[in-house]
Design a protein around this nucleic acid. Structure first.
Lengths: 144, 144
DNA sequence: AAACAAGTTTACGTTAACGTAAAGCAATAG
DNA sequence: CTATTGCTTTACGTTAACGTAAACTTGTTT
């Protein structure tokens, strides 16, 4: 008997609402069992939830995540045809991730140069008015 | 006079609809000028469009992308307070990107192992039934 | 002149991913 | 016993990011 989880345990662990978790089940990303009418999550479900979150952070839709889960599950039982289909889907995903890596690298570089530019602007301000306290203007602009 | 672009030129270059491009303008990601009532895009607009697409591939919302553009634009004219705010926003983004890098690495590993598993399953099928043509089952399942 | 292409505005429709009540069952605390 | 806590289902509401259609202008081709 491996460990099980309640919906609210998972919700607080991953900082989600129970609504979201139920929604993910509705989208067939999770398949908890029931004790009475109450959902019981296995550690497999927990892993899936973690992977779901990871996928979301990468911009995948729930449908795409579900597709990957199904691929993984059917790997054992697939026919030749199925297996080839899976391989192509996997390749597709890997290519997309490679592209994302490149994108991230580019954006990182841009942010880095933006940071440098920012720091230089600050230095210049400090040279001109070293003793000045903040509040040059009343721009409060959305600390959100 | 540097080069300018029409909306449909940009649309076909980046494989977008003109609808999207106008929408991005509505969201203040682009600021084309006008010749009569017709939009004229500068190369700066083109760069912004490219960055927008890159941002989208990383899962950023249009609002977030807009925020980054505004940060960048205000870097020159910012007050001390503003500059510090920008630096923190930049740091925020960079942290998110680092996380994404990790996520990608993890998912890449998972996909790799899925691929290996797939190839092994194929090999086993080939050993058992080397002369068999496909069509073990009639599963056509959404080539989509 | 008439028609076509490429642009425009206005506005309603759609999908994804939840948020937000409303109303009800089940166990436990006071 | 009833009140609170945690779970449930049902269902309507909301936001983002466009799609799609209608109706109009402007310039170019036939």
């Amino acid at each position: 008997m491996s460990k099980t989880y309640s919906i609210s345990e998972l919700a607080s662990e991953f900082d989600l609402t129970t609504r979201s978790i139920r929604f993910y089940e509705d989208q067939e990303l999770l398949h908890p069992t029931r004790r009475g009418q109450t959902r019981v999550y296995s550690s497999k479900d927990r892993v899936r939830l973690k992977l779901t979150i990871r996928g979301k952070r990468l911009g995948l839709s729930l449908a795409e995540i579900r597709e990957l889960f199904e691929l993984w599950d059917e790997t054992r039982s697939g026919s030749k045809k199925q297996l080839h289909l899976m391989l192509s889907k996997i390749a597709e995903r890997r290519a997309a991730l490679d592209q994302q890596m490149k994108d991230i690298t580019m954006v990182q570089l841009e942010l880095e140069s933006a940071e440098i530019r920012c720091r230089q602007a600050l230095e210049e301000l400090d040279e001109k008015e070293p003793h000045e306290k903040q509040q040059e203007e009343e721009q409060t602009e959305a600390t959100d």
